[in-house]
Amino acid sequence: MTLIATESLTKRYGGRVTALADLTVAVEPGIIGLVGANGAGKSTLIKILLGLLAPSSGRVSVLGLDPTTDPAAVRARVGYMPEHDALPPDLSAAELVTHLARMSGLPRTAARERASEALRHVGLHEERHRAVGGYSTGMKQRVKLAQALVHDPDLLLLDEPTNGLDPAGRDDMLALVHRIGTEFGISVLVCSHLLGEVERICDTLVAIDGGRLLRAGPIAAMTSATDVLAVEVSEGMEELASRLAALDLPVTRDGRTLLVALADEATYDLILGAVAELDLPLHRLDQRRHRVAELFAPREPAHV
């Protein structure tokens, strides 16, 4: 089943500002990272997925439902964690999450039970009976996550869940999101402007920029396909380059380093053999994993 699918999705505000432009993407259930700079259209996309905004043109489906025609059905199965502060300071976390569970249609008793369950899952225990106003940013983020989880959705939409957290808090939040996506069996769409964060936990990556789709696909395919071996020798780099080229290995130079595409384990042997034959002092031979960040690199001049 396709989790989220859009087709030529376009959103213009007031006929001038284009937030989304001809976005066509389809993702399978799992943990999906939605990455883009601030203002790339992430929040607009989420609001369209929730049926809170109508797209200017194009089609969209969430869990096989159309949020433009049946927003209530979509929202019943989706949990949303907004980016900004969203908690009344004078209520306790337990009261707020219970109330919001009831707003999702849970009966009174079930709402109370699910609320304390959800708060426990995000790591809030006794403090859940204290007023939210006295919570740390990390605790507030957890409450926001708990209210998105309380009605047991099939899909979570998390808008910048690590916003305002310190490095340890970020790690905790990412681990929690990963746990929800794997152990809880709930699909998660994580929005972030920090690629390095989401690429650690998601299995699908959707990158948008200026409302346009940059890349979308399984994260494994994006990284493994570009694995290279970095070879450094103290001298004789030219000889080694020509020898490797003669062995039909694609070689590129990167300063004092030779980069060789890693086809399989045999590539190691071929390189080591070549170095030994030429009797060169091998300085370094290691696998360099292409960061997903490099996918974005070529586009940067376009921003000038």
């Binding site: 209530a72 929202r75 949303y80 907004p82 900004h84 908690l87 999702s104």
Partner: peptide, 17 residues
């Protein structure tokens, strides 16, 4: 109070029109 605390997105992301 709801307008100020920003809690409205939490309501409007639920089925309630």
């Amino acid at each position: 109070r709801d307008l100020r605390s920003g809690v409205l997105p939490l309501y409007f992301s639920r089925p309630l029109p």
